[in-house]
């Protein structure tokens, strides 16, 4: 089965986290997901624009959704828990808040858009779990099972909560990511932090606290025996990988924990080329995990 989606990579995958975009393209091709690019998409606001101006935030995201609608596409595929949260929040508000909708409709009308609400934002994790047949759809595609490794999923808040808006998995005890980890041949690590915050939102408010939060999550995954962590959110990836050194200092421990993007983890098990998956672009070398499955990352 193939699905055609409007591809919403989000800002980070187009700037400091390009490896996420690379891995997504490779994995989508292997899974039969046709990605339609939209050079017109704007930033989702990451929750920060919402703090500065509620209506403007909804309007920016309603425009993003309307762009996909105009192209006749019903799914906007995100690869970031936060983008997924913000786009879904906008769609929810346009459906339930008549006052805001009227204001946004008026503004969008001036630039030639008519928002219909037909395009639904869905994270890649959600597309696999709900539309493509669940984790099992990956089983026949696995070429290099991650047997003998332990992987700790780190969901990222916004794909899960608030549940009455996101309507995906269980907001406090999710399982979709772990289901996939199992099918890929690895053993999931269940730890408290997997549904918690990575600290990113306060990185600029109080870095010490942000880093201590990240450090605690990594340490907990490590205590659970994880060889690597994996996340469907590139902002979590920044906290957990890019700032891991600082996070380690904040909790007084040398963490040395590889952190993969969700599609990278799938890509490795599918036997895709490590370079295509952008694996050399991490702060903490994922080689630690890859040794266990006999893959090497090119320098």
């Amino acid at each position: 089965m193939t699905v055609k989606v409007a591809y919403y990579p989000g800002c980070v995958a187009q700037e400091s986290g390009r490896e996420l975009d690379m891995a997504t393209r490779a994995v989508a091709a292997a899974l039969g997901i046709e990605l339609v690019d939209f050079p017109t998409f704007s930033c989702c606001g990451s929750g920060f624009i919402d703090e500065a101006n509620m209506t403007l935030n909804i309007a920016l995201n309603a425009r993003n959704l309307a762009l996909a609608e105009r192209a006749g596409l019903n799914t906007v595929m995100t690869i970031c828990s936060t983008c997924q949260g913000m786009l879904t929040h906008a769609r929810h508000t346009m459906k339930h808040d008549a006052v805001v909708k009227a204001r946004v409709d008026q503004t969008l009308g001036k630039i030639g858009f008519q928002y219909q609400g037909t395009a639904v934002p869905k994270h890649l994790l959600q597309i696999i779990s709900e539309d493509l047949g669940g984790a099992e759809m990956l089983r026949p595609l696995v070429r290099r099972p991650l047997t003998g490794t332990k992987v700790a999923a780190f969901y990222g808040c916004h794909i899960l909560r608030p549940h009455d808006v996101m309507k995906f998995d269980d907001p406090e005890e999710p399982h979709t990511f772990e289901d996939i980890i199992k099918v890929l041949g690895a053993e999931p690590v269940y730890y408290r932090g997997r549904v918690q915050c990575c600290g990113f939102p306060i990185q600029f408010v109080k870095p010490e606290t942000a880093q201590r939060i990240a450090g605690n999550q990594i340490r907990e995954a490590k205590q659970g025996g994880a060889d690597a962590m994996a996340t469907p959110c590139p902002l979590c990836h920044i906290s957990l990988d890019t700032y891991q050194k600082e996070a380690g200092k904040a909790v007084g421990e040398d963490l040395n924990m590889p952190v993969l993007h969700f599609p990278q983890l799938i890509g490795i098990a599918l036997g895709l080329d490590p370079k295509t998956l952008g694996l050399p672009r991490h702060m903490v070398d994922p080689q630690l995990l890859l040794n266990k499955v006999s893959v090497s990352v090119p320098a």
């Binding site: 187009q14 700037e15 400091s16 986290g17 490896e19 050079p39 017109t40 998409f41 704007s42 500065a52 101006n53 509620m54 209506t55 403007l56 309007a59 920016l60 425009r63 204001r103 946004v104 503004t107 969008l108 001036k110 630039i111 858009f113 890019t242 050399p280 672009r281 991490h282 702060m283």
Partner: peptide, 30 residues
């Protein structure tokens, strides 16, 4: 680690985004 902060070019249709700002970046919309 290859994480260059190479800036991406402005999006296509930036004028639409700016029109949204012109219309909604107002106190009553906050």
């Amino acid at each position: 680690h290859g994480k260059s902060l190479k800036k991406h070019p402005p999006i296509q249709g930036l004028s639409e985004v700016q029109a949204i700002y012109a219309d909604l970046n107002k106190p009553e919309d906050i």
